[in-house]
């Protein structure tokens, strides 16, 4: 009898991962790292945002147009944009992430060669655009094609992969909040990308973070910008829906 009561108590005390208590990785950081993110003068990610701000108004490509020439003030036109990506690109009829969207814009409207993914130029502009949504809740678009993508992403999230035969869910749902070696396992909400990671000593994309995890379980990484990568991102964003955007976040 006592054992049964104890077991029931233990079950009740166990956090229901995901649904009830969602935590940004911010909550699990040390006070010093939190202070670093909270203060724009100390947050190194702001260096990239500053760089992106310069690129926003720099004319480029055959049309000699800057982002600002079409979109105007980013603070108004880009507010909330990052919170709803990945989204469907109307012309292609398929989903793109924010970095992909920017590259498409550069190709179509500036007639420029877009900066390669994860280059400093791409990261800076993406960080600048995403920064305009800081504090706004993540709001994936209400589109059946995105819903389909989220379902695909959810399947990828639960699929065991790699030599270690682990799925994302086994760490980030089942064991979130516990420790892997010395580090707290976060719930894996992509609230602050591109973000400054102390381990990287630089700004990096969600794709880079996913690469860290996939190589960690000794699986083949998702190709950046590939259908699978965007599906997984769409699922992660739906999982984090309603949580505030933190770009540029700082993580250990």
């Amino acid at each position: 009898m006592r054992a049964a009561v104890l077991a029931a108590l233990l079950l009740a005390a166990m956090p229901a991962a995901g649904a009830e208590e969602r935590r940004s990785g911010f909550a699990d950081m040390s006070a010093a790292t939190q202070a670093m993110q909270a203060d724009d003068a100390a947050n190194p990610g702001m260096l990239w945002v500053l760089d992106g701000e310069g690129r926003w108004s720099r004319k480029a490509g055959r049309t000699e147009r800057s982002c600002a020439d079409c979109h105007g003030e980013a603070a108004a036109s880009m507010r909330g944009v990052a919170a709803r990506y990945p989204a469907i690109d109307a012309e292609r009829g398929e989903a793109v992430d924010l970095a992909g969207r920017i590259a498409l814009c550069q190709t179509r409207h500036q007639e420029a060669t877009p900066a390669p993914r994860e280059s400093e130029a791409s990261l800076a502009l993406t960080a600048f655009v995403a920064h305009q949504s800081r504090g706004l809740p993540i709001a994936p678009p209400d589109d059946p094609r995105i819903a389909l993508l989220q379902a695909e992403g959810a399947a990828l999230y639960r699929m065991r992969r790699g030599q270690l035969n682990l799925s994302c869910a086994q760490c980030h749902d089942d064991n979130a909040g516990r420790r892997l070696a010395g580090s707290v396992i976060p719930q894996g909400h992509p609230t602050g990308y591109p973000l400054y990671r102390l381990e990287w000593q630089g700004l990096g994309s969600l794709q880079r973070r996913l690469r860290g995890c996939t190589t960690g379980v000794r699986a083949e990484s998702f190709a950046p910008g590939s259908h699978d990568a965007i599906a997984l991102e769409a699922y992660l964003m739906s999982r984090a829906a309603g949580m505030p955007v933190e770009t540029p976040a700082v993580r250990p």
Binding site: A41, A42, P44, M46, L47, Q201
Partner: peptide, 9 residues
Amino acid sequence: LRALIQHPM
């Protein structure tokens, strides 16, 4: 006074 500079170190 606070100073942050971008440098790879």
